[in-house]
Design a protein around this nucleic acid. Structure first.
Lengths: 239, 239
DNA sequence: CAGATGCGTTTAAGGTATATACAGTTCTTG
DNA sequence: CAAGAACTGTATATACCTTAAACGCATCTG
């Protein structure tokens, strides 16, 4: 079990970094891992991550499911390739003016943009430490580049990165959920529920009456970032 | 499809709130939704969420998989029951001294504790707007109770709640991953990778050399909370 | 005590990933 | 230039998963 996971990671890394020896003999391959990943991404964009099965992806090339296993060790690695695929290219923030704060803000907005363009990415990157490809590391590098000028200890920079990356995920999740139609049904049902049990949830009821869940045109990402970066600022320049 | 989802939500809500008419005729049921959920939680705690199948849960009662469908409409609802089960009881923060800041801090720590006790909860609550049970709403109510004294507009209280809840998830995820053994293999492999491509990721490399990924005994939750709440504080009492 | 009601089972359909064995094609090498 | 190695893609099979449908049977109510 442990060995299997280790091998999975190794295989995944090799694939993501294109470190594999090409065969010389035999027929030319008709596919590449990258092309397979692209097809899988298109499928996930259109029908969600659950719709991505080996068989459906293979069908996009008029092949049998098993044919994919010539190019990709398994589904885990396919998903890793999908992630890497939509993370290209990693952002270059060197042209952003205004110091660390505007740079990390830009990073967050770009990151959110990817999540919104590919809603399945949230599910795909939730959980587990997966193998990281060059583009994923590129995003990480860009974030550290943005935080470097804070002059904070590296460990704190790392923590701030985790905090900001998590915040982007939270906001993106919220917005993806909201875009996904059946949110209205949920709102109606949950709202009715709370009203019916108002006595059990007094503070929640009060907050709702005061408009806590009223749609708000302001960008939630900007709000969250403002809070967090204010907190970071206090760390950078103690009053 | 939309109708199915609506029905799913309805069924889930009814189940979570115990709003169903008990039959009078026929044999006594040998199970209850709550007992099934408990068994499923035990299974998930021991072997992970992926190990929770109708058949394995039923086996805990020496029943066939189909027997569960007498008590639970489907697996979706079972997972909702599992969530509700580990969220009991909702926290009561009224005894916490020290104003909104220590209350929301307490909320966050208690919340994190649940995630760490049941690592699968992260996966189970990721994604989708699911049906909410009384305990889940209890947590929400407690959070708003903690934030009320800030005097901030309700919409902002909501946003801050989302921010804090997300932050707890981020930190919990990090720690669950870390506790889960094979993190070491991941560190080794990823570290080697970055070293090998140091020129492509200069900032990342520099950060690592400066100890960005060195284990740190301080609680990451406290760090993250301190930043965010500092940011909120600035909003509450503008300098 | 009769009959309706609901429990739990069996069976089966339609998914999923993927191991293994095989047919056929193509390129390299003697 | 033939022979065979090496590769591609397929078919088959296993082992899971959720859940629909039909049925036997126990049990409680009237």
């Amino acid at each position: 079990m442990a060995k299997d996971k280790a091998r999975d990671l190794r295989a995944g890394v090799a694939l993501l970094w294109g470190e594999q020896d090409q065969p010389t003999r035999g027929p030319k391959p008709s596919l590449t891992p990258a092309r397979i990943a692209e097809a899988a991404v298109a499928l996930a964009d259109a029908e969600g991550l659950a719709a991505v099965s080996m068989s459906k992806v293979a069908a996009a090339f008029d092949l049998s499911a098993m044919a994919l296993y010539r190019y990709v060790p398994g589904k885990t690695e396919l998903v890793e390739l999908m992630i890497e695929s939509v993370l290209a290219p990693a952002p270059d923030l060197s042209a952003v003016a205004g110091g660390w704060r505007s740079r990390i803000t830009r990073w967050a907005h770009l990151s959110r943009q990817v999540y919104r363009a590919h809603p399945w990415l949230l599910a795909a990157t939730a959980l587990r430490r997966q193998a990281m490809g060059p583009h994923q590391l590129g995003w990480l590098d860009a974030a550290f580049a943005a935080l470097e000028p804070t002059g904070l200890p590296a460990a704190q920079q790392h923590r701030i990165f985790v905090l900001v990356a998590g915040l982007v995920r939270t906001v993106a999740q919220e917005q993806v959920d909201f875009d996904q139609q059946h949110d209205q049904e949920w709102n109606r049902l949950t709202g009715e529920l709370i009203t019916r049990h108002a006595d059990r949830f007094p503070h929640l009821t009060r907050a709702i009456d005061a408009g806590a869940f009223t749609p708000d045109p302001a960008d939630p990402l900007d709000f969250a970032l403002a809070r967090v970066l204010d907190g970071v600022q206090a760390l950078v320049a103690p009053a």
